[in-house]
Amino acid sequence: MAVAETAAPTPAATTPASDAVPTVIADNVNIIYKVTAGSGGKGTAASAFRRILKRQDRPTIREVHAVKNCSFTAYKGDAIGLIGRNGSGKSTLLRAIAGLLPPASGAIYTGGQPSLLGVNAAMMNDLTGDRNVVLGCLAMGMSPEEIEERYPEIVEFSGIGEFIDLPMSTYSSGMSARLKFAIASAKTHDILLVDEALATGDAEFRVRSEQKIKDLRDQAGTVFLVSHSLDVVLDTCNRAIWLDKGVLRMDGGVKEVVDAYNKEATGKR
């Protein structure tokens, strides 16, 4: 583990002023996914029954250790960028903070209910956009009256326009990303987790959603941002965490971490 690198060079950024209030504490978090790899075949009823009796997993189930021994503390007012290569566990870690993906060991403590804004937000593709707006808001715990009140604002922000009464399966990926982002950001949040939400939209939507994130960040205590665009991270964050193959490689001021990450990325080439 690259413990030395993590702890030593960045005391200034991670140790806050004495009155700082922690909002997210991750303590030695391990996250393990179970995935069904390859084509396992359905098997017969008899073999399925035997497997259940012996409490064996399917032979083709593989475990993926997505986040390994990760610890950090986030404070009120922090905007933390999560950087790292594809598949390094950034989105997984966000989901764990949101409480959507329970860690296999270790613990994550949060103040209030964290909210995840992401393009992976799944809606019902057979249904029209407006039904998805209502369903998504109900699932987030909003009341029907509240939804009625916010509905025009959500649709307006998504910029979907007249396509709102078409099924979501007919939307382009950019359009559905806009709608999902609009739904998820309809609520106010204590802890805001943003997962690559800005990547798929067009330039106009990107500007609008970055502004929305800034607004939300002013209301929210803490923001986490996953992005492959280091410029966005440098622009919006004061702190960065670098994940490499599930291991927390570096945690510190945004400039230092991004520089170190850049150095390694270019050094490898």
Partner: peptide, 22 residues
């Protein structure tokens, strides 16, 4: 040492009214 640290983290979390996320 690890379990002592875990207990400390839990104590800090409790002091600031944080709850386990999942």
């Amino acid at each position: 040492a690890e379990s002592a640290k875990t207990a400390e983290m839990a104590a800090v979390a409790e002091r600031y009214g944080l709850s386990r996320s999942s």
